[in-house]
Amino acid sequence: MLCPDLEQATAAIIAVGRAFDARNWAPATSGNYSIRLADGRVAITVSGRHKGRLTSDDVMTVDLDGRALDGKKPSAETALHAMLYRRFPEVGSVLHSHSPASVGMTRALRGATGWTVAGHELMKAWPGVGTHDHAVTLPIVDNSQDMAVIAAAIDPLLVAAGDPPAYFIRGHGLYGWGRDIAEAERVVEATEWLIEAERAERAFRSMA
């Protein structure tokens, strides 16, 4: 169900910002978070604000093309949120984390267009995954200062991967989404954990 009003959405965004900051997923002013409102607007973090110290003034509204509706300045990456809302009518929230693990992993996988994970119980935190006996590929797209370039590059990768609930921008971080902000947070948290688990497994294998 879509968030009924801006006040509720703002409170949820502030809470996620504090949680992500505590996990080192939102250093400096990185990351951005949004919620689709029941009236069709999107509540999203204002450009350049520290996500661990958000207030109600740090959340603004845009339309589904990413245009500001209240005179505040949206992040350039608002276009990536808007693209996902237009593409997936059921999506109610988009969250962008910026963890060292996701940035480092995508930089290490130079040239790769996806990261495939299989066999993990925690994959069931992703929507539509009901068993560990499964493989999911999350797309990786190269970074750009032009959001239209990223949006155009990621769309066919999402189709090819079967529309997973997340993707990476190389050297930039993770985008995850869900039917509401709670589901989007589960997607991001599970994905970040899976990166760490895969890294730990490789470290233990090197010791064997």
Results as ranks from 00 to 15, higher is better:
180 D>R: 00
186 R>F: 03
10 T>C: 09
51 K>L: 07
88 F>I: 03
1 M>F: 06
99 S>E: 10
109 L>I: 00
184 A>N: 08
196 E>T: 06
149 V>Q: 11
147 M>N: 11
195 I>Y: 06
124 K>T: 15
107 R>G: 11
103 V>S: 06
137 T>F: 00
185 E>G: 13
201 E>G: 14
145 Q>E: 12
199 R>S: 15
94 V>D: 08
62 V>A: 15
13 I>S: 04
133 D>S: 02
57 D>K: 05
21 D>S: 08
60 M>V: 02
43 A>S: 09
152 A>I: 01
208 A>C: 04
72 K>G: 13
58 D>G: 04
15 A>L: 03
68 A>Q: 03
51 K>P: 10
55 T>C: 13
79 A>E: 10
151 A>N: 07
186 R>K: 14
204 F>N: 10
83 M>C: 07
6 L>M: 14
104 G>M: 03
168 F>N: 03
81 H>V: 14
140 I>V: 10
162 G>C: 06
157 L>N: 04
155 D>A: 15
67 R>A: 14
93 S>D: 13
158 L>C: 08
203 A>I: 14
112 A>L: 07
24 N>R: 13
205 R>E: 13
110 R>V: 14
81 H>Q: 09
130 G>D: 11
135 A>M: 01
40 G>K: 02
156 P>W: 08
196 E>I: 10
1 M>W: 04
140 I>D: 05
203 A>N: 01
172 H>G: 01
116 T>D: 06
145 Q>S: 08
150 I>A: 06
35 I>H: 06
175 Y>F: 15
11 A>F: 00
52 G>P: 00
83 M>T: 15
89 P>V: 09
30 S>T: 13
160 A>E: 13
122 L>C: 05
201 E>M: 09
150 I>K: 01
200 A>P: 00
196 E>Q: 15
138 L>A: 11
126 W>Y: 15
104 G>I: 05
105 M>G: 05
127 P>I: 01
153 A>T: 00
200 A>M: 02
9 A>R: 07
41 R>T: 03
29 T>W: 02
201 E>W: 06
198 E>Y: 03
44 I>D: 02
65 D>R: 15
158 L>P: 01
